[in-house]
Design a protein around this nucleic acid. Sequence first.
DNA 1: TCTGTTCAGTTGCGTTTTGCAAGTAATGTT
DNA 2: AACATTACTTGCAAAACGCAACTGAACAGA
Lengths: 144, 144
Amino acid sequence: MAHSFRCDCPITSALDVLGDKWTLVIVKQMLIDGKKTFKEFVEAEEAIATNILTDRLKKIEEKGIIKRLSLPENKKSKHYHLTEKGLGLTPVILEMAIWSDGNLRDLHPDLSTENPIEYIKLNKASFVSILQERYKERISQTQY
Amino acid sequence: MAHSFRCDCPITSALDVLGDKWTLVIVKQMLIDGKKTFKEFVEAEEAIATNILTDRLKKIEEKGIIKRLSLPENKKSKHYHLTEKGLGLTPVILEMAIWSDGNLRDLHPDLSTENPIEYIKLNKASFVSILQERYKERISQTQY
DNA sequence: TCTGTTCAGTTGCGTTTTGCAAGTAATGTT
DNA sequence: AACATTACTTGCAAAACGCAACTGAACAGA
């Protein structure tokens, strides 16, 4: 089932792939929250339904954004990892965090304030690298 | 009908507002393609259905991302403008364009190549400003 | 080895959202 | 007066979503 794109615009095409309520939440849970397993995604505060999760994991794996890995010492659980293509979404996710911080508090007063948004804004590029390196460091600690 | 957010995470909250196939496409059509009227949105290559367009314009107006303006010399057509909150989405949209350019060509070989992506990447911040200033310049040329 | 539990899903089903086509009401044009 | 344009609304079928319950393989302890 090939993906069909609405047109040749890069922005519209990005939204053909990422434009739904869950895809980028899953990527964020992996990148920022360090989640790797089906169970961890289901138990996150966003509370995704299991059938939706299965569907999204399959779709973004098909698109090369994540990889599914079996653990040699444990045949029950599987690990999901971001690929380079998925890690490439770090700037998009960071810009969303910055936009929320500056523009969503009127609609959502309880929005988290714990992230170092001012620090991120001062040097976005280095924060992108920090997150990506931290992620790679984290996944390199498990044998597959 | 108050908007309900899944949790207090800024990224998830951004996706509660922006996470669908059309919202950011409409913002992009205004910011990049210079579209202002219902007719212009409908006639764009993305081909949004009129009922969906009406719904999205209403929702993002309620959230303060756009403003609807009546023209004094023309009571038939209306103009939709990005607010500062809407203009604040420029970095998100640019990062999506960059991601597509670097990561979507395998899935979408016909992806447009006309945008100066290399130039954007060299100095993102200045390109954000250029787009925002160009937009403000454009809308300042009509009296309301 | 039997029992229970955990993990990663699948299935069923009702609700919501989407997409397409057609229609409408107010305004503007000839 | 007749027609066209703009910004919608309505109806309906199809797809996506959300919830709860269920399954099946893999371990864990007795």
